[in-house]
């Protein structure tokens, strides 16, 4: 009896606000429904057909994928380089550096996004003042041009979350026994050889896990993009979460069934990534040394 009493808050809250929405989305996606207080009409798969034929949906899908394919390698590799330097006992001031690189992780993404609007402002933002000082007159409209807005958002994303992968890598590097390096250098191995023959093989399982954690995180960029560009200009930085939001809450006549259909497709995409993650973790366990 006590058991279920203790589980009750979790079962109820989680059931209502997580499990039901996941299942409910499927039902909602079959409805024509233009506002939370209006009536719903069953329309079958019509919403899916329409989503499927909307080029803006596929553009948002591509942006989501591109965002992942660019930011994940950049974030994982840059943070690994930083972690290797910071992990060395010979590195001066390593704690200060770690704190600085980790600081953006703790801050509110939405607020950082707004501040970044000013930082990248074409006329008075510090980035463009610096660009102009270097001799490029006129500056670059980082967030206001459809050629650069998505890329600027990617750069800010890497800036914001590098610290978290850095901590992952530092935790991973800590599991490599120090005497292995000492034994290696007594045998006459240089730093490059030590890295190749000791660090790389031992880090393999962690590499898989860290990459997958980063893949997963790169799908959740609503806060950053909504506050920095709102998906614009002309949908040029619109990712799937923004697309769903636009149809459900941003439009003058919301189309909740249509947005739900897009959400279900997005959910399936996340699910595929999740399966990949599961397989990856399995593979990591098999090659596993540390974990």
């Amino acid at each position: 009896m006590w058991v279920w009493l203790f589980l009750a808050p979790t079962v109820v809250l989680y059931g209502v606000f997580t499990v039901y929405p996941i299942v409910g989305s499927y039902w909602y996606s079959l409805l024509d429904w233009d506002g939370f207080t209006t009536t719903k009409t069953f329309v079958g798969l019509a919403n899916y057909r329409e989503v499927w034929h909307d080029p803006l949906f596929w553009q948002a899908f591509w942006h989501t994928l591109l965002f992942m394919l660019v930011t994940v390698p950049a974030q994982v590799i840059l943070s690994l380089l930083a972690a290797i330097l910071l992990n060395s006992p010979k590195m001066p001031l390593s704690r200060v550096f770690r704190t600085a690189l980790f600081l953006p992780v703790a801050t509110t993404t939405a607020i950082v996004g707004i501040v970044m609007q000013s930082i990248f402002d074409p006329a008075n933002g510090p980035v463009n003042l610096f660009v102009q000082k270097l001799g490029f007159d006129g500056g670059i409209n980082f967030l206001g041009s459809s050629h650069t807005s998505l890329w600027t958002a990617m750069a800010v994303y890497v800036w914001k979350w590098l610290g978290i992968t850095l901590i992952y890598w530092l935790a991973a590097l800590q599991t490599v026994p120090r005497d292995l390096y000492e034994a290696g250098s007594i045998d006459g191995a240089g730093p490059v050889q030590l890295f190749r023959h000791i660090t790389v093989p031992l880090l393999k399982p962690f590499t898989i896990i860290i990459t997958l954690l980063s893949l997963e995180a790169s799908l959740h960029v609503f806060d950053l993009i909504q506050t920095m560009t709102g998906g614009g200009p002309f949908y040029s930085s619109e990712v799937l979460e923004i697309y769903i939001y636009r149809w459900a809450f941003g439009a003058t006549v919301p189309r909740l069934g249509y947005a739900s259909a897009a959400a279900v497709i997005f959910g399936l995409f996340v699910f595929v990534i999740g399966i990949l993650q599961l397989l990856g973790v399995r593979a990591a366990r098999r090659t596993g040394v540390g974990s």
Binding site: T18, P21, I22, E241, I244, L256, A263, F266, G267, I273
Partner: peptide, 12 residues
């Protein structure tokens, strides 16, 4: 449900 994104569940 470990990895469900908010963007997915927000409408329900």
């Amino acid at each position: 449900t470990l990895l469900v994104p908010t963007g997915y569940t927000i409408i329900p």
